[in-house]
Design a binder for these strands. Structure first.
Length: 258
DNA sequence: ATGGTAGAGTGTCTA
């Protein structure tokens, strides 16, 4: 089974590329983030013609997540993690959707961006991650994958120039500690062993021709529970998908399971 | 410190 995750930066504007990506790599399950669409706005016809079902969660024009699968979608759960008290800071229902596809529990995650370290959204991000970690600890004995845009660069090698991130989110010790917490609980970055190079980025800002100069960040991850990780046979970043007109600012990450 | 680009949808907000 082949699983992928991709921050598409608008599913509606990117649907041709999404369909081409699914065809090109024969993807069975695709977790997408930043769908920027309500469920009733999703373009399903091309996906349905290819044999895919879609489960989506999204309430506004900025976030939104979905799971696209041709091996079934069962036990869909969205709106996680529930965060009472954050309603005035952010839309909390559009950042995660979980489903069982081909016997594997997959969570498509759009971790809050955080904006700036002194912004309330940064506190919200850390709180969101803490709640996710609490829940994920209960799933680690099953084949579970936490996939998506984590908006965290876990090491200095995961950004093109750490000096440029001195006052930025994504690289702060608290965010990195939050990410490390999932590893401490037994989740594994199943892609890095197959793509160990320090410039294996998954995101390049649209500004300043950052893709053309490979000035990117590694912020999209597939973290697998031990039963999931044991089945991984390969992984890669589809860097070429970021090239050319009409690309998302993120590249897809692909994982193969035995 | 600012601005650069892209996508939502029309006056800005978000990343």
């Amino acid at each position: 089974m082949r699983i992928a995750t991709w921050n598409v930066n608008s599913l509606r504007s990117r649907i041709d590329r999404v369909e081409a990506f699914l065809d090109r790599h024969e993807v069975d399950v695709l977790a997408v983030q930043e769908t920027k669409a309500r469920e009733d706005q999703l373009p399903l016809m091309g996906l349905e013609a290819r044999g895919y079902d879609v489960a989506a969660a999204g309430v506004n024009q900025w976030n939104g997540v979905a799971i696209i699968s041709r091996v079934g979608i069962d036990d869909v759960e969205s709106g996680f993690p529930d965060q009472p008290g954050w309603g005035e800071v952010a839309e909390v229902e559009s950042r995660a959707i979980g489903a069982t596809c081909g016997g594997v529990r997959i969570w498509s995650l759009y971790v809050p961006n955080g904006r700036k370290p002194d912004d309330p959204h940064y506190v919200y991000k850390l709180d969101w991650l803490a709640r996710l970690r609490d829940a994920a600890a209960g799933w680690r004995d099953q084949p579970t994958a936490l996939v998506g845009d984590w908006n965290i660069a876990p090491t200095d090698d995961d950004v093109f120039d750490i000096a440029q991130f001195a006052k930025s989110t994504h690289v702060t010790p608290s965010e990195r500690a939050a990410f490390q917490g999932f590893l401490d609980d037994g989740y594994v970055d199943v892609v890095r062993p197959h793509a160990p190079e320090p410039d294996t980025y998954t995101y390049w800002d649209y500004y300043r021709q950052r893709y053309e100069r490979n000035r990117g960040m590694r912020i999209d991850f597939v973290l697998g529970s031990a039963p999931f990780a044991a089945r991984v046979t390969g992984a890669f970043v589809d860097r070429e998908e970021r090239a050319g007109q009409g690309a998302s600012d993120h590249a897809p990450v692909v994982v193969d399971l035995a």
